[in-house]
Design a binder for these strands. Structure first.
Lengths: 225, 225
DNA sequence: ACAAAAGTGTTCGGGTTACACCCATGG
DNA sequence: CCATGGGTGTAACCCGAACACTTTTGT
């Protein structure tokens, strides 16, 4: 068996900052698609697991701390890469706002955050991959407490609310939303208030991850319509 | 870039017959795992898309007509295949009962249906892959009209009901289930009755696929709790 | 005192759930 | 006439949706 197929991984890295969903892209230094923006990724090394390959590439290219990672989809059309038959396993990743700085990268490519609704032209089939990832994120918000991964450990209820309205691109009722989320009993209200310039100071909340997993065991279903 | 990684596809093929969920397996003739049962699959050919590879392998090994196919997950642990680093893109497939006969296969391996709850020992990490596929099927039943893909084009309401109870492994209320499904308006009641030995004859139904897609466009959501 | 954001309770309606009897046929 | 599976309606309850005013702070 001698295949002429290469295996790559790519990561769609989401971040949420200043009430805006951002995507991490790198600028390509070499052909093909030189000077084009692309999602970070690279070839898998022999005897390396796919997850390890993603982590390694992200480390090399962006030096970011990833807080959430899951497999998205595998793209394998033979013509998706002009260099030959390259299949790519795409991963869906999230970075917390307080780890946002893109540090010096050893591969010397430029890495930069872009608002999801204002992306540059993209290399390969990356526009399609990003569209798939965005859809996945929107779906996951409804049936998995993944919004908390996009926020810092301590957050305001209004942050969570804005996150949902921003990413789902629709308005929600503040009272019903708060009631629903609080009824799940997966948030802890901290004894800390934050005053954001003007307006009444607000409570900080934290996601009780262990409590969530405990509830999952007993049949709990997270769902926000 | 010279990788020593091979790319394979595997298909988890589900069928539903005699009120039982079945899985198609093939017997391996060669090492590794000689004489073990495994899910059908094989290596991807250069310049062949992943879907084409699945179709080709299924044709070669089982000669079955596939009615539904979607990508499941990609398995890439370096030690999952004793021959070396093989990543496998697993697909989730469904065969209709009236296409059930496993015809003569050109690869001369034996292909056979097994009840999902009575599987033989399996090669590689196939037990895990099958578990993932079963979970996917169970989830999909709730939010996608995929049960109809497992039945013949004409089916009894009781068939559909038994399918749900069998696969979800829980009982459902017959009246509420019927009301719910009929309210979707995606079934056509045919003017044909079937008498199954004893008991009152029952109506045949058909899934109105076009109507379903039409409804989808206008925001319809299929959901069975 | 006014602007800005946080926090909170009630009502209404629709959908889900629970539940039991009659019907049509074959043996 | 009896066994078997098919077919049907209603009432209670719960949850989601709609909706507006008060509180606390900074300026």
């Amino acid at each position: 068996m001698r295949q002429n197929i290469s295996v790559a991984v790519d990561a769609i890295v989401f971040g949420y900052i200043e009430n805006s969903l951002q995507l991490l892209l790198i600028e390509r230094l070499t052909e093909p698609f030189q000077n084009c923006w692309a999602i970070p990724g690279g070839f898998v090394t022999d005897n390396e697991s796919l997850e390890d390959a993603v982590s390694r590439e992200l480390k090399e290219e962006t030096n970011l701390d990833i807080h959430y990672l899951e497999q998205l989809y595998t793209y394998g059309k033979p013509d998706r890469d002009p260099r030959g038959h390259v299949i790519s396993i795409a991963y869906f990743a999230i970075v917390k706002p307080d780890k946002f700085e893109v540090k010096a990268d050893t591969d010397a490519k430029e890495a930069k955050w872009f608002p999801i609704n204002d992306l540059p032209d993209l290399a390969f089939d990356h526009a399609k991959i990003i569209a798939d990832a965005k859809e996945r994120l929107q779906n996951k918000l409804s049936y998995q407490p993944i919004g908390f991964e996009l926020l810092n450990d301590k957050f305001l209820f209004s942050d969570l609310e804005k996150l949902y309205t921003t990413i789902l691109e629709k308005s929600i009722d503040r009272r019903n939303f708060r009631k629903k989320i609080l009824s799940f009993n997966i948030l802890e209200e901290l004894n800390e208030k934050v005053s954001e310039g003007r307006g009444r100071p607000a409570s900080l909340f934290a996601f009780k991850r262990e409590k969530y997993f405990e509830l999952l065991e007993s049949g709990f279903v997270f769902e926000i319509k």
